[in-house]
Computed example of a mutant assay.
Amino acid sequence: MNGVFDLGGTDGMGKVQTVENEPVFRAEWEKAAFAMFSNCFRAGFFGVDSFRHSIEQMEPADYLLSNYYEHWVHVVESRGSAKGVIDLAELEQRTKFYLENPDAPLPRREDPELLAFVDAVVKSGAPANRPTDKVPRFKVGDRVTIGADSPRGHTRRARYIRGRTGEITGAHGAAIYPDSAGNDGPEAPEHLYTVRFTAEELWGPETAEPNNTVYFDVWEPYLTLAS
Rank of each mutant, 00 (worst) to 15 (best):
V144A: 06
V122Q: 09
F117M: 03
D111A: 09
P136V: 00
E113C: 07
E113K: 07
V140G: 03
K134V: 10
V118Q: 12
R143M: 12
K123T: 11
L114Y: 09
V140C: 08
V122H: 03
A126K: 13
A126F: 15
R109H: 14
P131I: 06
A120Y: 08
A126V: 13
R143E: 14
V144I: 11
D133T: 14
D119Q: 14
E113D: 14
K134T: 09
K134I: 10
A120V: 03
P131R: 06
A120E: 12
A116D: 12
P127T: 07
V140L: 06
L114I: 09
T132Y: 06
R137N: 13
A116E: 13
G141T: 00
A120D: 14
V144M: 05
P136C: 09
R130L: 12
P131D: 03
V118F: 09
P112R: 05
V135N: 00
V140T: 12
A128E: 13
K123W: 07
A120R: 12
D119W: 00
R137I: 09
V121M: 05
D133C: 03
V140S: 01
D133Q: 12
P136T: 03
V118G: 08
G125K: 08
N129I: 10
G141D: 07
K139A: 15
K139C: 07
F138W: 05
L115G: 04
D119T: 13
L115I: 11
F138I: 04
F117W: 02
D142L: 04
E110T: 13
D119C: 06
V121W: 06
T132W: 01
A116K: 13
S124A: 15
D133L: 09
F138Q: 05
G125N: 07
R143P: 04
P112G: 08
K134G: 01
S124H: 15
A128C: 10
V144L: 09
L115W: 11
S124F: 13
D119F: 01
R137C: 11
D119H: 12
V121K: 06
L114D: 01
P112K: 02
V118D: 09
R109Y: 10
D133E: 15
A128R: 11
E110Y: 05
R109D: 09
P127Y: 05
K134S: 12
E113H: 02
D133S: 14
V118L: 11
D133F: 04
E110C: 05
D142W: 07
D142G: 00
D133A: 14
P112E: 03
